[in-house]
Design a protein around this nucleic acid. Sequence first.
DNA 1: AGTCGTTACGATGCCCGTAAGGATA
DNA 2: TATCCTTACGGGCATCGTAACGACT
Lengths: 324, 324
Amino acid sequence: MKLQQLKYIIEIEKHHFNISLAADALFTSQPGVSKQIKLLEDELGCLLFLRSGRKLTGLTETGFKIMCYAKKILADVSNIYTISEEYTSPEKGQLNIVTSHTQSQYSLPCVIKRFNAKYPKISINIHQGTPLQISNTIRKGEADLAIATEALHLYKDVVMLPCYHWHRSIIVPKTHTLATTKTLTLHQLSLYPIVTYQFAFTEGSPLDITFSLSGLTPNVVFTATDADVIKTYVKQGAGVGLIASMAITKKDADSFHIIDVSTLFKPSTTCICIKKGTFLRLYMYEFIVLFAPHLTRDIIEKAMHLSDEHSLDKLFSCFTLEVK
Amino acid sequence: MKLQQLKYIIEIEKHHFNISLAADALFTSQPGVSKQIKLLEDELGCLLFLRSGRKLTGLTETGFKIMCYAKKILADVSNIYTISEEYTSPEKGQLNIVTSHTQSQYSLPCVIKRFNAKYPKISINIHQGTPLQISNTIRKGEADLAIATEALHLYKDVVMLPCYHWHRSIIVPKTHTLATTKTLTLHQLSLYPIVTYQFAFTEGSPLDITFSLSGLTPNVVFTATDADVIKTYVKQGAGVGLIASMAITKKDADSFHIIDVSTLFKPSTTCICIKKGTFLRLYMYEFIVLFAPHLTRDIIEKAMHLSDEHSLDKLFSCFTLEVK
DNA sequence: AGTCGTTACGATGCCCGTAAGGATA
DNA sequence: TATCCTTACGGGCATCGTAACGACT
């Protein structure tokens, strides 16, 4: 067995079992890839791929299990390279973050500024994505850390480190009928068309639960991944905007009437998510502690070794998180 | 990086940084090994081994971290081979068990008989060892499972699956002054020389704690790993024997006076220990369930994914273990 | 006919083992 | 002087890429 063969089978799976595409992605010839997977199958004495005729169509049961370990192995190989980079050039490196628009626009900039001052040679890449994209990216090891609010609890191979709580606000144009209101009930809110984030009202989400517990149905007319887009539509009179309070700038106070609804909805918690078993470089720990001061290296390392939510909750029970 | 290079560095560490010995163990030439580790160090751009002159003397800090991942990688490689064997020849294979003398002599034989009837083609290897040897063997992945009573709680990379509780008995020659006694106090026991298992009274052990809580000091004159040896010495009048009740055969009732001391000492728990992340073959699950009927595949898989003792305790809280 | 995978073949390059050299105790 | 690691060199083998072939859509 060779590491290269494991790389090959992973790439083949990634390209939906098209060997030619996989070979291209691996910058090698297609017959070479074919031959190597054949050699691997011969050595192991079993087929890894299902075939119809000559084409590969999927993984066998054995192939699936082996693929899981192959991914683990390559992740660890990549960890070894990371360790050596940490040693050879501690100041250089990359920091790949995948997160939502709100984070990258409103909460990350000042952290990145401070981080950049300390580590000017680290190149920072920020990828934006939907919750689903975020979770996939982090699970594939394509980003070092994710900053997300929900939806990653499900996976055992990802740790969630709670960073801070945040509340929501309603924004309406200054000319809106609600423009004089200071407080709002859930019932009142349900009477207006709502413009908010994508996925904010997916089944089982905190907002969805709050509404259904009171027997009300929100009237969501438009969703975006982007608070700025929501603001634009609200300005045009598309509906009342329901966004994170931290996405409201000083300038927005001129354009909108803002109603704090932190009493209506439970606060959400923003978390840093890391794939378990990943070797983190010193500067990554530094970045995290800049983002959330209570997440010291010690705490992070402890959290990464825990398995269930219960132990995590216990670990973080002694912290009072900042509210934004 | 190649898998072979990782094998080489692991073997070098295993042989106390003697490249020549490592090369012998790997059935290859010494210069070949030298060259490969040099290539690896060049590729990673950092030294893995400390050197004094030309000799290797130890691991660098980086080397140590990399070694950890190298071991993980090779363990997963070996898991892949195991998976393919499971597919190609489900009934063939090996079952390597490392355990204490008491288990292998008194509790395993009947399980192995039943197992062998079901899987005649699996060759079973039983290694005996001291608690320390047992834990090392399982952590190095040199055995599939360990059956042990204590001392493996410490390691995060090993799961402990509780199997049954067991009690202790005192044995004395029929001519002994205690030969007419049916019950015994801790104080009485402390007045006699004791012959028992090695490590039974190491600091922090259940027996040690029981004695020190009552302010008494046991007088241990002789220890063995082996209940049979203990019996021999007790027969010769060396002292009173303190052994597991399950190590007492019908025949022993003729030679010894037996006093049950289950009221004096808390019962101990025998556990099956498995290295986390190991792929277990079907027959291994079968063996375990024969040994402890409550340890079904489902339960074992759950336990192997848990990290802390607390969650494990919770998982097993619904079972009432057999007492032997 | 076009896409995709297999087989065949020649060249490159890597790895291994032997042999010789140097350092250290 | 014995042990142990490094360097040097030649042979063998695995891998790679090109090219031609076969199967399926």
